[in-house]
Design a protein around this nucleic acid. Structure first.
Lengths: 251, 251
DNA sequence: CAGTGGTCTAGACCACGTG
DNA sequence: ACGTGGTCTAGACCACTGC
């Protein structure tokens, strides 16, 4: 078996030129997608990969550089290169951009409101690349920081992938749900797009978040993607931004 | 004159090891800060810089790679490497993350409300690394998209740097204010941090934005930095998010 | 001490843009 | 045809980690 990538643009000029390291990147990406290396595990060393793919170590290096820049891999000098995971304290806030105004860390607690299986409404189906009526899991929860309700989440997941997800398993699990998705369902969230607006709390929302009706809330609509840009989660969060703010950096 | 960076860690082991390419990066950064190359202009070729700094072209390359990743430089194959600017159509939305829900581009128009020089309130001074009472410029404006008022901006700038900034010069200028800052005052904004909340429109704000009192607004507080992480602008924007949303990508 | 990623170099060749 | 950045290689050496 030869894994060697073919060689466009080296012999004859080609219409679609793709650098070798991009092809290597795709191969590694495929390995990640197929679960060849699990989140938190080390991938083979650069020299091993170079031998496997029949390219120089420098070329593998450049491929890994890009995957590390995308946060799919984590390099650790002297130790190896590891598959990114949501299971580490360091990256707990990779997808949660809410910070306390005073900067102090807070104890967080999650209260699951419900977790049901139902047919996807059109809007949800569209976001998840499914058909209207396909099975989806819908869960809602309230996240509290220092015992103050702060986030009301409404989460939609493809039913055929998140099969055993129940209220009990959610309540049992300690840690971010993205870590649970990884370990229980083999789904790694790799990237997400968000649309943010200011809205007014309905009475139901206000009650769940212990704020006055018509309080302003930050609405964060998120679509999370796994490898290959496949949407795996639609989430609508409502954030109380009295003592917390959504932080962002522009480059 | 020798620009050659010194060489820690090559001869004897050193406490603070800094790779050669990082030192080159700093040297290029200093050149940018000192205005050796202006926004939009090309910097010398990799080989020229390699000769100037007495290192290999590959090392210069790696330094430029990082500066390009930070959006300080823009590489253009076959043409050269250019200093990033806010003056190009392509990057007009680098710092403006508001998008129309329907995705259609809109004609934008800016109405300047006022532009005054006054003594910095404590909060403003703190954000701009100045002393309370130092001179600052304060301008306010309304941005409209397709003739619909959408953003109310309140902008604070260090007075000793933005000397000739007046309401007339602002009104005369076509294009983003960041482009004006570059061309008129030599200040390049390179990075920004934002804190985002949901708030309720005061009657004054509501009137300026033509929305009902107590409408929900997205409050975006931004500190913009020039080279060397020096804060140069404090801006509080209020966004109407009825037909527009703030978009963000998480990695 | 061995193995990993990180740096640096030198040289060959390719793709792109411009004359 | 030339100069720019982009790719690929091979080899030497350094820094960090863990046995």
């Amino acid at each position: 078996m030869t894994d060697r990538p073919h060689d466009p643009g080296r012999a004859a000029s080609s219409a679609a030129f793709s650098p070798l390291y991009q092809q290597i990147k795709s191969l590694i990406l495929r390995g990640l997608d197929h679960g060849e290396w699990k989140p938190g595990e080390a991938i083979p060393s650069e020299f091993e990969l170079a031998a496997r793919y029949q390219v120089s170590q420098g070329t593998v290096r450049k491929a890994i550089d890009e995957l590390a820049a995308d946060n799919l891999l984590i390099r650790r000098q002297g130790k190896g290169t590891f598959v990114a995971t949501h299971n580490e304290a360091k990256v707990r806030f990779r997808f949660l951009r809410l910070s306390a105004d005073d900067g102090l860390p807070a104890a967080s607690r999650s209260q699951i409101l419900d977790c049901r299986r139902l047919k996807a409404p059109p809007e949800v189906a569209g976001a998840l690349d499914m058909r209207t009526g396909d099975m989806v899991v819908n869960m809602r929860r309230v996240l509290s920081f220092d015992a103050i309700p702060t986030i009301l989440d409404d989460i939609w997941l493809p039913g055929h992938i998140f099969k055993g997800l129940t209220m009990e398993s959610l309540e049992r699990y300690r840690g971010p749900v993205y870590a649970l998705f990884e370990t229980e369902f083999g789904v790694s969230m790799v990237r997400a797009d968000e649309k943010i607006r200011a809205v007014i709390a309905t009475s139901a929302q206000a009650e769940l978040l212990s704020v006055p009706v018509s309080s302003p809330l930050l609405q964060v609509e998120r679509i999370s993607y796994t490898y290959g840009d496949r949407p795996m989660e639609l989430r609508r969060g409502l954030y109380v931004t009295e003592r917390y703010h959504y932080r962002n950096s522009l480059n």
